[in-house]
Simulated scan of single mutants.
Amino acid sequence: MKKNDFKNQVIKIILGLDGRVLFSEYVWHDVKIQPEYWSKRLVLIYRLGRINLYYSKKNSLRKKLWRKIYLHLNLKITEGKLNSHIPASAYIGQGSKFFHPYNVIINSHSYIGGNSVFRHNVTIGNVGNGNQDSPHIEYGASFGAGSALIGPIHIGHHSKVGANSVVTKDFPNYSVIVGAPGKNINKD
């Protein structure tokens, strides 16, 4: 048995996983690529919450125990120290990086593709008033500091959202979005 296979088996037993996810690929890969100390903690807590929510065996004592640990870590580190809100029900694809992960707010119904880049003060959310429609952002997006994406919008893959931009409408692939309201300045 390989060393990684043994580690995955031990972690499956400890966390009560149902076998659909390899912990070393799903969690450790994303933690290792993070650029700073607090980014690693943020991603680890998010991935643990996501595993607990979707990949743990139903109604097990371990699931309840790890849920309490996740909620405690989320409250103390993600919301307490980093002032960020990233619920486990929000989808953030693998390979995404958080540079300076402070004040990052992501709605629980958001979908963000893999290899995205987040900077501080990014807000991705709905319009409120009971409307839970949230942004759908494709693979490889980049979000500048202070950018906000609001409402049921679709942002194409490899798009870039500039600093302090406010995006409230759809944009195609390879867009470069700047300003408030956001405008695509990529002419290609």
Score class of each variant (00 low, 15 high):
M1S: 11
K3P: 02
N4M: 10
K7H: 12
N8T: 10
V10H: 02
K12S: 15
I14C: 06
I14E: 02
I14L: 14
G16I: 03
D18F: 03
R20Y: 08
R20G: 12
L22E: 15
S24D: 14
V27E: 09
W28T: 14
W28E: 15
W28P: 00
W28K: 05
I33S: 02
Q34R: 09
P35Y: 03
E36I: 10
E36H: 08
Y37R: 12
Y37K: 13
Y37N: 09
W38C: 06
S39C: 09
Y46D: 03
G49Q: 02
G49A: 05
I51M: 15
N52A: 05
L53W: 04
Y55E: 14
K57F: 04
K58I: 11
K58P: 04
S60C: 06
R62K: 14
K63T: 07
K64W: 02
W66C: 02
I69Y: 01
I69V: 10
Y70V: 01
Y70M: 01
L75Q: 11
K76F: 12
K76N: 13
I77A: 04
I77D: 04
I77E: 10
T78P: 01
E79W: 03
L82H: 06
N83Y: 11
S84V: 12
H85S: 12
H85F: 13
H85I: 13
P87L: 10
A88P: 02
I92T: 04
I92V: 14
Q94A: 12
Q94F: 10
G95T: 09
G95M: 08
G95A: 07
S96I: 08
F98K: 00
F99K: 00
F99R: 00
H100N: 10
P101W: 09
I106M: 06
I106E: 06
N115E: 14
V117E: 03
V117G: 00
R119C: 07
H120N: 12
N121D: 10
N126Q: 06
G130C: 03
Q132L: 14
D133G: 05
D133Q: 07
S134W: 01
H136F: 13
I137M: 06
E138M: 13
G140P: 02
S142R: 04
S142W: 05
F143I: 04
G146Y: 00
S147N: 05
A148G: 00
I150K: 00
G151I: 04
I153N: 03
I153G: 05
I155N: 03
I155G: 08
G156Q: 07
H158V: 09
K160S: 15
K160A: 14
V161I: 15
G162Y: 05
G162C: 08
S165H: 02
V167S: 07
K169A: 11
K169T: 15
K169D: 12
D170L: 03
F171W: 08
P172M: 11
P172R: 05
N173L: 11
N173S: 14
Y174T: 10
Y174C: 14
V176C: 10
I177W: 03
G179V: 07
G179L: 08
N184K: 10
I185G: 03
N186G: 08
D188V: 13
D188F: 11
D188K: 09
